[in-house]
Design a binder for these strands. Structure first.
Lengths: 226, 226
DNA sequence: GCCAACCTTAAATGAACCTTAAAATACAAA
DNA sequence: TTTGTATTTTAAGGTTCATTTAAGGTTGGC
């Protein structure tokens, strides 16, 4: 699921993100009311976890504005305010559930699961760059009418490139992204996988290539620059 | 809405009934576990408000039995037990919400409203996908003129796939759906049952297959009919 | 030409997955 | 309660395929 977490206390926000990411959700963080409203208002999320006490707009304000806009993404309130009146208020203006801080990880996950069960019209999201589309749930890479599945590592690396298409990525960057900081993987691992991915790009006839910047790293680019 | 209230303390039960009747709901009271299970098991209610501590069967027992029987009426637990483990347990076995006694009248009404909104899922008696039909009350799987019965677990898993035919389901998804969040079931359980189901699909000559996405999960698909 | 960085490929390894049969459990009938 | 049957769980061995290893080849800068 695509989940928007709105929480101004950074360490709590990060903890929630980590927890949900482990459960295979895609998490986006926002820390202030207006940003959150703006981000949520396209209706692209499957669930919004919303702190009530926020800078600018409160969680309740955001909920009211979204519901007025006919955005019915399920909303789970998350807050230190634990009085019954608050709970009732939140549920009445269109929230779907309520969890008090400090909360238990298992309970958060259980409630997310319950809310997610409903909102099953999930849009499979994908990364797009030039003529490439990478499906994030099936790991299938598509170019025009050709498709090819990627392995886990190929996916980790290519998605990293697609998310950072304007940057040069060093081998160390790629190593720590795809193998982890503490792994003993070496440069040759990256070289091998870059080779695998290039082969798949060629097989798809994509115009996308991976350029080598000798001694520096790799960068996405395109063929025939005319 | 038609609401079943299961509560053994008569004065509380009556108070809830009065409260909900005032909100224009039709309320039926039960005071013991077996009676409640029997009453709920025809699936005629829109909502069940269920005390956890009951004579004979506990509220959790009733929920489990109902869900096993494919009765998915929303359930609101109502209880004095307020530990997180209880909450998580209740939500995981198929409950939808949880309210601790003593509760506030306004909060009860607010939560009833939320759960009522949710029960707009159409009740069908079979799931259909491509050439497959799965009867939800007999657990019989049919393809063209061939039929074969499914066991409980086979049914749990295949119906989960049929309800989510466009999504990739991970082993964890399937485990928590068919065995529950707290079970100690392992990946091999899923593999064994996927194998069982595939054998039955083949036996029926269905065009439907279960694809493996290595390292990711499984997804419904069809044999390539060109 | 020489060296370091990089590329490619094939073989070895290991993790993920599949299948099957036997053991354990649940459940209903006798 | 006992017995028989269906279902679920356990366990083991086999298979496949992603990943790692390793070796030899290529490229580009000095």
């Amino acid at each position: 699921m695509k989940i928007l977490v709105v929480e101004d206390e950074i360490h709590i926000a990060e903890a929630i993100k980590e927890l949900l990411t482990k459960e295979k959700h895609h998490v986006h963080l926002e820390h202030s009311g207006y940003d959150a409203y703006y981000e949520a208002s396209n209706g692209a999320y499957d669930l919004i976890i919303l702190d009530v006490m926020l800078p600018e707009l409160s969680g309740f304000d955001i909920t009211t504005k979204l519901r007025n806009k006919k955005i019915f993404t399920p909303i789970l309130f998350l807050t230190a305010k634990d009085t019954i009146d608050d709970k009732v208020y939140g549920l009445n203006i269109g929230g779907d559930d309520y969890l008090s801080k400090p909360f238990n990880a298992a309970e958060l996950i259980a409630r997310v699961k319950v809310l997610g069960r409903r909102h099953q019209e999930v849009i499979a999201d994908e990364l797009i760059y030039e003529d490439l589309r990478l499906n994030l749930s099936t790991f299938v890479l598509t170019c025009n009418d050709n498709s090819i599945p990627l392995s886990q590592k190929e996916f980790d690396i290519l998605s990293y490139f697609l998310k950072n298409s304007t940057f040069v990525l060093s081998k160390d960057d790629i190593l720590s992204k795809a193998w982890g900081y503490y792994s003993d993987a070496i440069d040759n691992h990256v070289e091998v996988y870059i080779s695998f991915i290039r082969k798949k790009l060629a097989h798809l006839n994509s115009i996308v290539i991976i350029e080598t910047l000798r001694g520096i790293g790799y960068r996405l680019g395109t063929k025939n620059v005319e």
